[in-house]
């Protein structure tokens, strides 16, 4: 697990430095790195649920909940503070996660996945149809917020957002890794391997899954706030099922056994999208599709698994 082996710790440090330094050298990268990190935070939540063997095809609803918190704030309360957006966005996503979670944790596998999808599509249609409240498909603008009460110029703000996002991503990675190593995190994995035995230990598997679900919803909310602020807009697409699919895609791409996989997957995903869409216009999805097929065929443990396997092979020789 992350932080245990010195090699992984060094890699982590190198990634953090890269994320922090590259945008200074290439300012146009700043927003891209924010998107990578913010989506990585959302994908941490997907990885938590995958520990229990459950795939949510509706996690974008929590992402949208965070994003629209910032959107509503801007429309109805005026320009707010980024810290307040993050706190309130996380609370909103957490409450939504608890409400939806109480229902969906009763189901497993395809039913769990599809119910999540159904809930997220309800949210999507509400956001799209309630035009007078949400501006419908146009989405809600998210004006540049203050940060701890300070006003920043657009040039400086992108760096403030970048470093704040980086700090949150680091904190979230460690918290999630810790969570997965805790008794509750281990029970989450136990749901995947033997739910019957878990019940025969006096443990409510539903309660354990609910804890994981709510944590993952909160992470979705944080990511949603950050992306909405970085792109200065929240649209109904944030809740659409393809967005949920994107998060699952990134999780599989990066590897689900480790919190670091979320960011590895997110980086490859966003970079491929960024460069492939510049070169290939509308067929960039084709590139991503090929990448995913290659990962599933040749590296079922994702990029992190591939990297670990190579290290293991090198240590043996």
């Amino acid at each position: 697990m992350a932080g245990r082996s010195p090699a992984l710790a060094w890699t982590l440090a190198a990634v953090v430095v890269a994320a922090g330094v590259i945008p200074i050298l290439i300012p146009s990268m700043a927003t891209l790195v924010v998107l990578i990190l913010a989506k990585g935070i959302v994908v941490l939540g997907i990885i938590i649920l995958l520990q229990a063997g459950q795939v949510s095809f509706g996690h974008a609803m929590f992402f949208a909940a965070g994003a629209y918190t910032a959107g509503f704030w801007g429309k109805y309360l005026g320009v707010g503070d980024l810290v307040a957006y993050l706190v309130v966005g996380t609370v909103v996503a957490t409450i939504l996660g608890l409400l939806v979670g109480l229902f969906v944790v009763r189901y497993r596998e395809i039913f769990f996945g599809m119910l999540n999808l159904a809930f997220s599509m309800v949210l999507w249609s509400l956001l799209e149809k309630m035009f007078h409240l949400t501006n419908g498909a146009d989405g809600m603008r998210v004006p540049r917020p203050t940060v701890f009460g300070m006003v920043f110029s657009p040039e400086n703000f992108q760096y403030v957002l970048l470093y704040l996002t980086l700090a949150i991503a680091i904190a979230a990675t460690f918290a999630v890794q810790r969570f997965l190593e805790s008794p509750t995190g281990n029970m989450l994995r136990a749901i995947k391997s033997n739910e019957t035995r878990l019940e025969y230990l006096g443990v409510s598997a539903r309660r354990i899954l609910l804890i994981g679900y709510v944590v993952s919803a909160a992470l979705g909310g944080i990511g949603g706030v950050l992306v909405a602020v970085a792109q200065q807009i929240a649209t109904p697409e944030f809740a659409y099922w393809t967005k949920s699919g994107e998060f699952v895609f990134i999780a599989i791409l990066g590897g689900v056994g480790n919190a670091m996989g979320a960011f590895a997957g997110s980086a490859v995903f966003e970079l491929v999208r960024f460069y492939a869409s510049a070169q290939l216009a509308n067929s960039w999805q084709l590139i991503l599709g090929v990448v995913l097929i290659a990962i599933i065929l040749f590296a079922p443990d994702g990029l992190i698994g591939l990297w670990k396997r190579q290290r293991a092979a090198r240590d043996e020789s």
């Binding site: 810790r178 969570f179 190593e181 805790s182 008794p183 509750t184 995190g185 281990n186 443990v203 804890i211």
Partner: peptide
Amino acid sequence: RTTLMRSL
């Protein structure tokens, strides 16, 4: 003991 902040 389903604490979140202590390793199993």
